[in-house]
Computed example of a mutant assay.
Amino acid sequence: MTFWLFKSEPATWSWQDQVNKGAEGEEWNGVRNYQARNFMREMAVGDLGFFYHSQTERAVVGIVEVIAEAHPDSTTDDPRWDCVDIRAVEALPTPVTLDDVKADPELSEMVLVRNSRLSVQPVTPAEWARIRALGGLLDRG
């Protein structure tokens, strides 16, 4: 299993919007960055990711699961753009802010710190465990 981070502006698509989609999930569409698209092409069904509210909140607020591998993005006819489908798994009891991440030496190499503009990014297993712990999910895998 591989871990990821998906960023969204809450005014456009929020954690609650994702939760409201239920088990059917939602296409993670509209990504127009080649590196982010390529990361989605690497994803497998069952991979997990953090759901990150960008802009004003700037915090990891939940966990999502990839439920469909990369396929053409339905929001464009341009064949260069793919997306995956994700579903909400659980909310973090305590959101983990960007300031929290930046202040933690264990997370200093995280892509979120080094390339904060990238909308889809990989997360290492150690980063995954640390953010889960900071978010209050210490005792759950």
Rank of each mutant, 00 (worst) to 15 (best):
M1W: 04
M1Q: 13
M1P: 14
T2N: 15
F3C: 13
W4Q: 09
L5S: 04
L5W: 03
L5R: 02
F6V: 03
K7P: 12
K7N: 11
S8L: 05
P10L: 06
A11W: 08
S14N: 02
W15P: 00
Q16D: 12
Q18Y: 12
V19C: 07
V19Y: 04
N20C: 00
N20A: 13
K21V: 03
A23Q: 11
E24R: 09
E27H: 14
W28C: 00
N29H: 14
N29I: 07
G30L: 07
G30A: 02
V31E: 09
V31F: 10
R32G: 09
N33M: 09
N33L: 05
Y34W: 12
Q35P: 00
A36H: 08
A36N: 00
R37D: 13
R37V: 12
N38F: 11
F39Q: 07
F39H: 11
R41K: 14
R41E: 14
M43F: 10
D47T: 10
D47W: 03
L48Y: 10
F51W: 12
Y52S: 12
H53A: 04
Q55H: 13
T56W: 00
T56S: 15
E57W: 05
E57T: 08
R58T: 12
V61E: 06
G62R: 09
G62C: 08
I67A: 06
I67Q: 06
I67W: 07
E69I: 13
E69S: 05
E69V: 14
A70G: 14
H71L: 10
H71G: 00
P72C: 02
D73P: 04
D73S: 10
D73V: 11
S74M: 14
T75M: 13
T76D: 10
P79D: 14
R80D: 15
R80M: 10
D82C: 10
D82F: 15
C83T: 08
C83D: 10
V84C: 05
V84K: 04
V84Q: 05
V84G: 07
V84E: 11
D85F: 11
A88H: 15
V89I: 11
V89A: 01
V89D: 04
E90I: 09
A91W: 03
P93L: 02
P93E: 02
T94K: 12
P95M: 01
V96G: 01
V96W: 01
V96R: 01
V96S: 01
T97M: 00
T97W: 00
D100Q: 01
D104S: 05
P105C: 02
E106T: 12
E106H: 13
L107Y: 09
L107C: 09
S108P: 00
E109N: 15
L112V: 12
V113M: 01
R114H: 03
R114P: 00
S116L: 04
S116R: 03
S116V: 02
R117T: 06
R117E: 13
L118Y: 02
S119T: 11
S119V: 03
S119K: 08
Q121K: 04
Q121T: 03
P122M: 12
V123C: 08
V123Y: 01
V123Q: 02
T124P: 06
P125W: 05
P125Y: 02
P125S: 11
A126W: 00
W128E: 03
W128H: 06
R130Q: 05
R132G: 08
L134F: 03
G135F: 09
G136A: 12
R140D: 08
G141Y: 08
G141N: 03
